[in-house]
Amino acid sequence: MSATSSLIHDLPRHTVRRAVVSSMANNIYLITAKDTGAQVLIDAADELPAINKLFQDATGDAAVPTSLAMIATTHQHWDHVRALAALVEQTGTPTAAGAEDVAGIISETGVATSHALADGGTLAVDGIELATVHLRGHTPGSIAFVLQEADTTLIFSGDSLFPGGIGNTGESPQRFTSLLNDVQDRLFNRYADDAVVLPGHGNATTLGAERPSLPQWRQRGW
C-alpha cells in the first residue's frame, strides 16, 4: 500500500481497502463488490472520519453506487469497536460478530449484533461471501473472515493470527492451546500457503510464511 492509497487488493470482482487508526494501529478493512457496489467493513475500530474516507476512496471501485451492507467485527475487544456505535448511528447498517462475543460487544458499545456467527458459516451480502472461522482463545467468540476469489484467498484474522505468532491469550495455557489448535486446524489445514493473512494490527503475511513456525510457537507457549 502506498502512502497515498488505501487500496491493498484489486481483484477482478472485489477491492479491499485499509485504514490504520488510533495509537493502537488498528487495521480497518473495507471490501467492495465491483458488480453490485455492496460493501462489508471489518472492524469499526476508531476514528469515524477515517472510515468515511475509506468509503470516499471506494466510490469509484464499483460500476454502480457503493453502499455499506454489513459491519463485521472480528472480536469484542474495545480497540476494535470504538467507532462501531457511531458508524451504526450514521448508516443504520446491520452488524455481525461471533456469537460468544455478542454480549461483550454490547457491553463495550451498546450495539446489539444483528447476525451472530459460528464456525463453518457464511456471511453474505450482494456480491460478497465471507467464510466465518471461529478461533477460540484470544476471545471466546473471535471470528476470522475469509474471502476467496479465483486463485486468491484473503484471511481477515483479527487478533488471532499475526506475522510471527498467534494472538494474546492472557498467559493462559488453556487459551493458548485452544487458539493455536484452532488456527492450525481451521486456517493452516483448510487453506493453501498462498493465502494472505490480513491481521487486526500490523502488516500482512501468508500462511506459507508462518507455517514452518507452528512447532516453535507451540513449544514456546505464546
Rank of each mutant, 00 (worst) to 15 (best):
S2E: 01
T4Q: 11
S5A: 08
S6E: 07
S6T: 15
H9Q: 11
H9F: 06
A25R: 13
I28C: 06
I31G: 04
T32A: 10
A38Y: 02
A38G: 10
I42K: 06
I42H: 03
A44S: 08
E47S: 12
E47K: 08
K53P: 00
K53W: 02
L54M: 04
Q56N: 11
D57A: 06
A58M: 02
A62D: 11
A62R: 13
A62M: 10
A63E: 11
V64K: 08
V64E: 03
P65I: 01
P65C: 01
T66Q: 04
T66P: 01
L68I: 08
I71E: 03
A72F: 05
Q76W: 01
A83M: 11
A86R: 03
L87V: 03
Q90K: 09
P94E: 15
V102D: 03
I105P: 00
E108I: 04
E108R: 12
T109N: 13
T109L: 11
T113N: 07
A116V: 09
T122I: 01
G127T: 15
G127I: 15
I128F: 06
I128T: 13
L130V: 01
L135F: 05
G137F: 08
T139K: 09
P140D: 09
S142P: 10
F145L: 07
F145M: 10
V146N: 07
V146L: 02
Q148K: 08
L154P: 04
F156Q: 08
F162A: 12
I166P: 06
I166F: 05
E171Y: 14
P173N: 10
F176L: 12
L179Y: 09
Q184E: 04
N189Y: 08
R190K: 03
A192F: 00
A192G: 15
D193V: 00
A195F: 00
L198M: 07
H201S: 06
H201C: 03
N203Q: 06
G208K: 12
E210I: 06
S213D: 12
R218N: 12
Q219M: 12
R220C: 12
